[in-house]
């Protein structure tokens, strides 16, 4: 049980990064459905940078830059050129898939160098790791897991306790009103879309660098889409997003675990679980949405000052 929970926390980390990334993006008013694509871009560039330089910092920076680059494209098209956000996001996903398999094809089967793997190995936090039960599960993990905790806390404070965070939420709730009160709405949208993209890139990189440090063709397999669903399920709140990501991290490794326990259920059927559960949560979220818990007011509405 304990080993399952330890693995579940690690498996939830890419979801945490991607979900928080999309959450920030949506809170500022943009619905970027390119999460899957940005994760793939982050994964391939992160792996490539790590493989060629042997530096974990380069790998993480590369992944963030790739995710941010995809998001910048999205922001330019949807914020400046007011293109349809749904279609632009889908295009970003398709583009990211092509980009990752194009760059990744020559790297298939390559293994990340030891210097990178060592950086991402599990290291316990002194004292905390000795807490019974919770210690080994939460505090004997790799650096990215800890970064995920920190990020969740920082984002919660930023969004709900700072002026910048307030302006960001105002931009997403009612762009025209935020604009009228002197908030630079264009800058807010660009900044948060790009920041969100960088987080998605990190989430993808985790899959390629930590979870399986060997390059494979599609490492993300739908996690980007699950992240989009988790944002809704978490009612756009960082701490809730963290919690639901943990649950889904557990679901995603259930198939493998059940096999090792000798349960005779087809692995392929158990592998459907995260996807079925995602459907369940979009249904539940839709049902709940009828009683409050609404998305940001101006989510995915293009803004044009002269049309106010």
């Amino acid at each position: 049980m304990e080993s399952f929970l330890i693995a579940a926390v690690a498996a939830s980390t890419p979801l945490i990064f991607a979900t928080l990334g999309e959450l920030v993006t949506e809170k500022s008013g943009s619905l970027n459905l390119g999460v899957e694509g940005m994760m793939l871009m982050g994964a391939v560039v992160g792996f490539m940078a790590g493989f060629n330089t042997g530096s974990p910092a380069a790998a993480l920076l590369g992944a963030m830059a790739a995710g941010a680059g995809g998001a910048l494209l999205f922001a330019f098209l949807t914020v400046s050129l007011r293109a349809n956000q749904v279609v632009t996001g889908l295009t970003l996903t398709i583009f990211g898939k092509g980009f990752a398999s194009f760059l990744g094809q020559p790297m298939l089967g390559l293994v990340e160098p030891k210097s990178v793997a060592a950086f991402f190995s599990k290291k316990g936090i002194p004292f905390l790791e000795d807490i019974p039960f919770f210690g080994p599960i939460f505090f004997k993990q790799d650096v990215m897991v800890y970064a995920g905790y920190a990020l969740t806390a920082l984002l919660a404070v930023y969004m709900f306790k700072t002026k910048l965070g307030l302006n960001m939420r105002a931009t997403g709730e009612n762009t025209a009103a935020a604009d009228a009160s002197g908030v630079n709405v264009t800058a807010h949208k660009y900044a948060h879309v790009i920041f969100g993209g960088a987080l998605c890139g990190l989430g993808g990189a985790y899959l390629a660098l930590v979870e399986v440090p060997v390059w494979q063709s599609d490492v993300v397999v739908g996690r980007g889409w699950i992240a989009v669903a988790l944002v809704i399920f978490a009612s756009w709140r960082p701490v809730k997003a963290f919690a639901v990501s943990l649950v889904f991290g557990g679901l995603s490794i259930l198939g493998l675990r059940m096999q090792s326990l000798g349960l005779h259920i087809s692995q392929y059927l158990v592998d459907m679980l995260p996807y079925l559960a995602t459907i369940a949560i979009v249904v539940v979220s839709a049902y709940r949405n009828r009683k409050g818990d609404l998305p940001p007011g101006d989510l995915s509405v293009p803004y044009f000052r002269e049309e106010r």
Binding site: L77, F95, S101
Partner: peptide, 17 residues
């Protein structure tokens, strides 16, 4: 890599959008 098609398709749609 044949994935070059995916990249080109994405770029075309970005421009048209």
């Amino acid at each position: 890599p044949a994935a070059v098609a995916g990249v080109v398709q994405g770029i075309i749609l970005f421009f048209v959008l």
